[in-house]
Amino acid sequence: MGQTNPPFMSGVPELLLLRLLEQREMYGYELVKAIKLVTGEAISLGEGVIYPVLHSLERGGALKARKKKVDGRTRVYYSLNAKGRTRLERLQGEWARIQSGVSAALEAPANA
């Protein structure tokens, strides 16, 4: 599977991470697996790129991180907080607007 992060993917990992973390707290590897599952593997990212996004969201106050010992390994679990929910709603709105705009453009006659 090719791992690409094309420029038009900007903002998509953030939206997906917030959406998944809205449901329950997860750690990095778990999040990547969940992204693959919910997108039907349509979105393929270099798995490491989620960490700077997670850290940035945490720094911005959208996520809360906590360390948890699991089978002798320390994992960082992320969860969404109130600020993150507001951000998710805004991003979902923006995404819907872009999606409808692109759909309208694709459905319009080519010589319009």
Partner: peptide
């Protein structure tokens, strides 16, 4: 490591956030 992806891209993302 192949699935983790390009480490230069990870570095760039970190550098794009001045707060880090």
């Amino acid at each position: 490591l192949d699935r983790i992806g390009n480490q230069k891209l990870i570095a760039k993302q970190m550098l794009d956030t001045p707060e880090f």
